[in-house]
């Protein structure tokens, strides 16, 4: 016992170092799971408030750009409405129960783009109806998936994450593929699992596929930048340029799929059998 005490006193510096490193790595390993520790996910009230103060100040410098973006989006939506009202006339009216997706506007209060695993914190939380696994989009394209929710904030796993995975579709060929991020550059993602017979060209549009319950079908993802990324597999890869500019991200929408409980219960039944 005496020897143990002497040993600890003699090597207390190294022992404390190892202890603290083990704690750090355990915390880090746990946070690599999809569901993360609330205290340190950037969604607790004190941290959220400080971030929001910072983004309030920073926001003024981007007002002009934000305005322009919102105006462009408005114009696009107006155009789409006119098409719908033209074709719908009297035979079809939009009813509440026809709406599958609801959009909850939110503001980005913290964001990173340069890490191997990037997260975004937004200023809407449980009280605003945000739940885990909801999709997040910007007016330019898709952004990520909600991974953690506190009362007033939520943290979003950005597309710029080593575990990010989205089902996508090429607009021209209808070919399904999957989007990952391993380029290290916040402008570019990698579409994988493309059969070799599919011809790709620079500038081809990539959209979300209909098999995702997180994003609505045909949401903008990006455009093909480099179709000739060689691969030893039987399947091709292509580098795409994200439609969303993650570095200037400010206003986003969280997607609430009203049919999700129904789809989930169907899926659960399927898995049971």
């Amino acid at each position: 016992m005496y020897n143990l005490r002497r040993f600890i006193l003699k090597h207390h510096f190294v022992i404390l170092f190892i202890l603290l490193e083990v704690i750090s790595i355990l915390l880090l390993a746990r946070s690599q799971n999809f569901h993360r520790n609330r205290l340190v996910s950037g969604t607790n009230v004190v941290v959220g408030n400080i971030h929001e103060m910072g983004s309030d100040v920073g926001g003024y410098f981007h007002l002009r750009q934000a305005n322009k973006q919102l105006a462009e989006e408005n114009a696009l939506l107006r155009k789409q409405i006119s098409v719908v009202t033209d074709t719908a006339t009297n035979t079809y009216t939009l009813l509440d129960h026809d709406t599958i997706y609801e959009y909850i506007p939110a503001r980005v209060v913290n964001n990173s783009t340069g890490m191997a695993n990037n997260y975004i914190v937004i200023n809407k939380g449980k009280v605003d109806g945000i739940k885990r696994d909801m999709g997040v989009i910007s007016s330019e394209g898709i952004v990520g998936v909600v991974t953690d929710v506190s009362l007033h904030y939520a943290s979003v796993m950005s597309l710029l994450h080593s575990k990010s995975f989205v089902g996508v579709r090429f607009k021209n060929s209808q070919q399904l593929a999957s989007l990952r991020w391993n380029t290290g550059n916040y402008r570019f993602g990698m579409v994988e699992d493309i059969p070799t017979h599919v011809e790709l060209h620079k500038g081809d549009t990539v959209l979300t596929s209909s098999y995702s319950f997180i994003f609505p079908e045909d949401m903008m993802v990006g455009t093909v930048e480099d179709p000739s990324v060689s691969s030893t597999d039987a399947l091709n890869k292509a580098e795409i340029r994200f439609a969303t500019n993650f570095a200037t991200l400010r206003h986003v929408y969280v997607i609430h799929n009203l049919h999700k409980p129904e789809l989930d219960s169907l899926k659960a039944n399927f898995l049971d059998k």
Binding site: S24, G42, N117
Partner: peptide, 18 residues
């Protein structure tokens, strides 16, 4: 706490202090 990465900076600064 701010960056939402528990243990990441803590591990790095601990090594640095060591």
């Amino acid at each position: 706490m701010f960056t939402g990465t528990p243990g990441l900076h803590a591990g790095a600064t601990t090594l640095m202090a060591f």
